[in-house]
């Protein structure tokens, strides 16, 4: 973020790491973006029965306010440029969950029109298996992502670009 360069490698910067990671962990905002049947399960996770608001996740209606892209469904070659563009529009730091077999590996669609895993076009942090995964499985994937974010550091992060 640019601050740690002034602080140096000491207890201050590691404490700052913990605070920032803690903040990020409890305020993952996913982009409202669904591709196929997995999106139905993703909506269920947001409903009152599973209620992922309690983990600090709130669907944002624009990728420019989002930290997390849940790729929920098979990505066709026609859709791939749009998925990539949504990912590119999200500000750093950003994470990606490949939800379901199709987004992870192509799944049963081993055919001409489907990208064999969304990791061929964008980097993926957590893969959630299932066809489609149950809402609990997606919640578990989100918890795993939180664990990953918790261990993160703000070192080596690019400072935000200031437009003049």
């Amino acid at each position: 973020m640019g601050i740690e360069e002034h602080l140096g490698d000491n207890i201050l910067s590691t404490s700052l790491d913990k605070i920032v990671s803690w903040g990020r962990k409890w305020s993952i905002w996913p982009a409202t973006f669904g591709l196929a049947c997995c999106a139905i399960e993703m909506m269920t996770v947001a409903s009152s029965r599973y209620d992922y608001d309690r983990l600090g996740l709130i669907f944002r209606s624009t990728p420019r306010q989002a930290d997390l892209l849940i790729v929920s469904g098979r990505v066709s070659y026609k859709m791939a440029p749009m998925v990539k563009r949504i990912y590119d529009q999200m500000p750093n730091p950003k994470w990606v969950i490949a939800m379901g077999d199709c987004a992870s590996s192509g799944g049963l669609f081993n055919v001409y029109s489907i990208v064999q895993g969304v990791d061929r076009i964008i980097p993926v942090d957590v893969y959630v298996p299932g066809c489609p995964p149950r809402p609990e499985a997606l919640l578990y994937g989100i918890v795993k992502l939180q664990e990953k974010i918790e261990k993160g550091t703000i070192k080596h992060e690019q400072p935000p670009v200031v437009l003049k």
Binding site: Y77, A80, P81, K84, R85, N110, V111, Y112, S113, V115, Q116, R120, I121
Partner: peptide, 13 residues
């Protein structure tokens, strides 16, 4: 061909 696919990096993004 059943599994003829474009390469993802050559797509027109």
């Amino acid at each position: 061909p059943l599994r003829k696919r474009p390469t993802p990096d050559k797509l027109n993004y």
